[in-house]
Simulated scan of single mutants.
Amino acid sequence: MQNGKQAVVVSVNLPADLQGALQERFEVHPVAPGERIEKALAPDVAARIRGVVGTVRTPLDQAFFQSMPAVRVVSNFAVGYDNIDVKAATAANVVVCNTPGVLDAAVADLTLGLILCTGRNLVGLDRFVRDGRWAKGAAPLSYDLMGKSLGLLGMGRIGRMVAERARAFGMKVFYHNRNRQAAAEATGIGYLERDELFRTCDFVSVHVPLTDATRNSIGAREFGMMKPSAIFINTSRGAVVDEPAMIEALKNGTIAGAGLDVFVKEPLDPAASALAGMDNVTLLPHVGSATHETRRAMIDLAVHNLIDVLEGARPGAAVNPEVDHYGTLKERA
């Protein structure tokens, strides 16, 4: 601690008011997004860091926690936290925070947008007009959404919001989840076993977190079960999908198309990925939460999670609430 202030790292661009709120309370050290914090800081500074605000590009693994033992909280500007070794953080008595809830509506809106884009071929028809093909003949037909079945793999907060939006378009909604959702089923949303969801639904939309259990969990087997007319939607994490298997399914007509906001490697390299050359795929640059209102709510929560923990209060969102040192941090400082 220097000048009575705890030292923190900020590895994300902050609005001026939040930057000021941190500087008023803490000794703030900026680190470029994606850099290894323990290598970017001078050793004497690294030894004093108590908290970090970063993104999913900020690697916070076992090596980080071992080399920076004074850290008490790491706060992700994201819902996902696959950049953080939560086990190592918990063992080091570090609170891991994220930003759930505030981006649910934005991601659900985008998911429905991808369903519309792929089902009605909106991007392809935009190109049809721009390329001057309209003057040469009628546009190709697309498909109604009304009456089509949407299968949601995962039924958390975002899945429930996608279901609401899809039903407003007259879609029949089904879901699969580790735990049955009685409240969802009471509204008429149907439950299907995982394989049956892939076999029967016209659209399959993924809403599961990236974990050891879900990594590469959707591959050739799952795509092989889908209808040739079915469309695959992913706004969760790219690595839950075996990407080469998905590309083969799209190339071979095993499935009709895909709407993707996430990829195994981001940013997607259009020169290296076959996805960029496929007319039956809609590609977005991981923008599920990318609205002015949502990003502001996310960064506000991420910053205040860090402030809360370092000032001895429970944060608004903690991934590992079993870390029990709330209210004692000032004394430990």
Rank of each mutant, 00 (worst) to 15 (best):
A239T: 02
A88R: 11
R180A: 10
A21G: 02
G137L: 12
R127L: 11
L306M: 14
T90Q: 12
H292R: 15
I37N: 07
A318F: 05
A63G: 06
M226L: 07
A213G: 02
D144N: 11
A21F: 03
I307P: 07
A21T: 05
V323S: 04
V74W: 07
A184E: 13
V102M: 07
I189S: 06
R221P: 00
Q62D: 15
S11Y: 08
D17R: 10
P33W: 11
I255K: 03
V94W: 13
G113E: 04
K87H: 12
N280L: 09
G159V: 00
A271P: 02
T214R: 07
N13H: 14
F263Q: 06
G288E: 01
P69D: 06
S205L: 02
V208K: 01
T328W: 08
F26H: 10
A135L: 15
L110N: 02
E311I: 10
G147H: 09
T254N: 02
P244S: 12
N3R: 14
R215L: 09
A230E: 07
V208I: 14
I189R: 06
H207Y: 04
P140R: 01
G253K: 12
I218R: 00
N252A: 11
V129P: 05
R165T: 04
I233W: 00
L116Q: 03
D212K: 15
A139G: 09
L301Q: 15
V319P: 08
V262W: 00
G154S: 02
G132Q: 14
E222Y: 00
D261I: 00
G80C: 06
A256I: 09
Y326Q: 15
A220C: 01
V86C: 13
A63N: 11
D279F: 06
P209K: 05
S142Q: 04
D126L: 11
L310T: 13
A135P: 05
M226E: 04
V319S: 12
N216S: 13
V319F: 04
L301M: 15
T291A: 09
L103Q: 08
F26S: 11
A183H: 10
P209G: 08
I84G: 05
A47P: 04
G51R: 07
F232K: 00
M171R: 08
L268I: 05
V323Y: 10
